[in-house]
Design a protein around this nucleic acid. Structure first.
Length: 719
RNA sequence: GGGUACGUAGCUCAGUUGGUUAGAGCGCUGCGUUCACAUCGCAGAGGUCACAGGUUCGAAUCCUGUCGUGCCCACCA
């Protein structure tokens, strides 16, 4: 054997060996209890990053461990079309060529993005393989596969028929850059230093007197339809019911009372802009106020804004402040810290706007989803995330599932004639007006005509589903639901959902809700949440900081085994982990240590030695290493059963390096004929225990030792 | 404002229901290469477990408070 272990030569060899032998393919055995993980489908719009390497490692450890335990084991891989994110990525590529999606048109854009996605998907599959992912490629799925789409439509139809999906005009989070509505979960709030302006609104009845309101967004005053104060605020008691005048546009608006107003904030009087602020929208519902939309979907002031019409929001703000100053209506301005919502995908500032969208009612879906966790039917690791989950689930607003983008599942909704569409949809998609009765038809297949008026010219809703609406059904759509296939019957509910804590709300909660709703069963029994991989100093990895560790480059350099074990060594569930090249190098050294123990054991060929361990001949050191091996077996098994990957890895590291190599191997040197069989046994079992963590080097060594069976991968877990 | 987590060796972090001299990796110091491995070995230094109280026979671990840090959520006009 060579002096140095060459991962470049072994890794590819063993992966294709395993694949050819069909070891990744799950086989149903009704007599045995299955183990199954649905792989969180990576977004097919780029390459794998270190976060993917972490999930591959954790899931592959669980999969290989359970497979060796003899359970029929399925790890189902997939890829996500990742709606908005992919569309943003592709639009940025187009931008470099000076183009927009509108230059291509919907069909061409879709097919280009499709090709782009397929290319990325193929790259990622290759990268997953390189990391040793022992998933069942024969069952691979993509979120836009036709059966998956059908299942997604089926679910929506069910929701619609049962009154849980509805269309409504609501205040939604609007991303001007993506030109789409977003769900609450897709908006990231960040604190920002801003200004709080105090603006004088003249009183209509008393000349020369004012009520002073405070705002961080003076430009929205164009859409003010009231001034609100707290009912218990004595300062304004006799103004309630009076009128104020919105400066610059001279609109007369009522002064009203509403308990949502905080007396202590600013002057205690707030301007109410129902069309552009969630709180104000609610006030308008309580007081039946008009909603004047002054900011358009293009982020410019609408015609309602009088002389400011057509200005961009920022320009309008500057102009309005200037004009207010001229009229001496700007009382003062003070620095103010407040949070601004941004689009999670493109980072543009979110504009709350009223628009007609499709929603899914949350409370009826959330209730059972809370119960199954409370009852312990689904367990979270670590447990503290259960509390975070409850808090979120108990305060859910209805879920806006329609997106005004082109990349994704187009809504399975048809309207009889264009009047079913909103003005926004007509404009964004440049659609012609067509006659019809306006009937709404939700169907998994294109309907031939309107059931009401028999009009055959139906218009399909141009919007697409929120990506998370389809991925929220991933645990069962991948198993061919709603058909009750053998795979579905046998493997569902799945065993573990292993994913990052950052998508607890976006994804995990939706899977639980939709899983229960669609299948009447929990989608998985355990939720294991991992943290974010940071650099050696705990900084978030980013291209601009130049501290990104590319898992594939690192795997080339140090081996997939090294990066895998580095990712679990000394890290804990639910917490972020720091990873530097030093740590990976250290694990490469561990790989080489294993290799050299193997050289010592395997390259020695005594003329004769007994191939069975005979208890009478055992010396103290032999007994010691064998009993340590036994303890190691027990501890590693227990740790893996309890998802304590780091413990298991450290136990093995300590045992192999410090007890086996440093002590026993040294002591064995004087009496090789007697110890050879023990060396072989200890090494073989060590490899088997380590295999889930470091699949390649363990296979390479195992194959060179006396063994039964074809591969370490399918050998029984040491007892 | 609410929630949650963290503060342990120079650095990065483990430490599962409280129990003997508190651990690992990297780094550091000294010595050592024919004889598996310098991607190595041997020996070693280094911590009042943020701080202050409390519970206990016993606390890094449980409780209360203080200081500091991170993250999440929220209708912070």
């Amino acid at each position: 054997m060579e002096k140095i272990y060459k991962h470049q030569e072994t890794e590819g060899k063993w992966y294709s060996f395993w694949e050819k032998k069909g070891f990744f393919r799950a086989k149903i055995d009704p007599k045995k209890e299955p183990f199954m993980i649905i792989m969180p489908p990576p977004n097919a719009n780029g390459e794998l990053h270190i976060g993917h390497a972490l999930f591959v490692t954790l899931e592959d450890i669980l999969i290989r461990f359970n497979r060796m335990l003899g359970r029929p084991t399925l790890w189902l891989p997939g890829a996500d079309h990742a709606g908005i994110q992919t569309q943003v990525v592709y639009e940025r590529l187009l931008e470099k060529q000076g183009k927009t999606r509108y230059d291509l048109g919907r069909d061409k854009f879709y097919s280009e993005v499709y090709d782009f996605t397929m290319k990325n998907k193929a790259t990622m599959e290759n990268q997953l393989s390189r990391l040793g992912a022992s998933c069942d490629w024969s069952r691979e799925k993509f979120t836009l596969d036709s059966e998956i789409s059908k299942a997604v439509y089926h679910t929506f139809k069910k929701l619609f028929n049962e009154g849980l999906a509805y269309r409504g005009e609501r205040l939604v989070n609007w991303c001007p850059r993506c030109t789409t509505a977003l769900s609450d979960a897709e908006v990231a709030h960040k604190e920002k230093e801003a200004t709080l302006w105090f603006i004088k609104y003249p009183l209509a009845e008393e000349k020369g007197k004012f009520i002073i309101v405070t705002t961080t967004r003076p430009e929205t005053m164009l859409g003010d339809t009231a001034v609100a104060v707290n009912p218990t605020d004595r300062r304004y008691k006799n103004l309630i019911g009076c009128k104020a005048i919105v400066p610059l546009i001279n609109r007369e608006i009522p002064i009203i009372e509403d308990s949502v107003v905080d007396k202590k904030f600013g002057t205690g009087a707030v301007k109410v802009t129902p069309a552009h602020d969630p709180t104000d929208f609610e006030i308008s519902e309580r007081h039946d106020l008009k909603r004047v939309q002054v900011i358009g979907f293009d982020n410019r002031i609408t015609d309602e804004g009088g002389k400011y019409a057509g200005l961009k929001v920022n320009e309008a703000r500057r102009q309005i402040l200037e004009d207010l100053k001229k009229e001496s209506l700007l009382e003062k301005e003070v620095p103010h810290l407040h949070s601004v919502g941004r689009c999670e995908r493109c980072n543009d500032v979110i504009e709350p706007l009223v628009s007609l969208q499709w929603f899914v009612k949350m409370p009826p879906l959330a209730k059972p989803a809370i119960e199954v966790v409370k009852e312990g039917k689904i367990k979270f690791i670590p447990k503290r995330y259960e509390k975070i989950y409850f808090q979120w689930m108990e305060n859910l607003r209805d879920w806006c599932v329609s997106r005004q983008i082109w990349w994704g599942h187009q809504l399975p909704i048809w309207y009889c004639g264009s009047k079913g569409l909103s003005d926004l949809q007509m404009k964004l998609n440049n659609l012609p007006e067509t006659p019809g009765c306006g009937e709404i038809i939700v169907s998994t297949e294109e309907p031939k005509q309107c059931p009401k008026c028999h009009n055959a010219k139906l218009v399909r809703d141009p919007d697409t589903f929120d990506t998370w609406f389809s991925s929220g059904q991933w645990p069962f759509t991948t198993l061919s639901w709603p058909e009750k296939t053998q795979d579905f019957q046998y493997f569902y509910p799945t065993s573990v959902m292993e994913t990052g804590y950052e998508i607890l709300f976006l994804w995990v909660s939706r899977m639980i809700m939709l899983g229960l709703y669609c299948t009447d069963k929990i989608p998985f029994r355990t939720v294991y949440l991992h943290g974010i991989v940071r650099d050696a100093k705990g900084q978030k990895m980013s291209k601009s900081k130049g501290n990104v560790i590319n898992p594939l480059t690192i795997a080339d350099q140090y081996g997939a085994d090294a990066i895998r074990i580095a990712l679990v060594f000394n890290s804990t569930p639910g917490n972020d982990l720091n990873l530097g090249e030093d740590k990976i190098r250290g694990m490469r050294n561990f790989t080489n240590k294993i290799w050299n123990i193997a050289r010592f054991v395997i390259d020695f060929k005594p003329d004769f030695y007994d191939h069975k361990i005979s208890t009478e001949k055992l010396k103290l050191e032999d007994k010691k290493i064998l009993s340590e091996l036994k303890k190691t077996k027990e501890k590693v098994t227990k740790s893996l059963e309890n998802y304590r990957f780091s413990d298991a890895a450290q136990i093995l590291y300590q045992f192999i390096w410090h007890q086996f190599a440093d002590i026993y191997v040294e002591k064995s040197k004087d009496r090789r004929e007697e110890t050879q069989v023990i060396l072989e046994e200890v090494l073989k079992v060590s490899m088997e225990l380590l295999h889930p963590f470091m699949p390649y080097v363990t296979e390479e060594v195992w194959q060179r030792l006396p063994h039964e069976g074809k591969s370490i991968m399918v050998t029984p877990w040491p007892k």
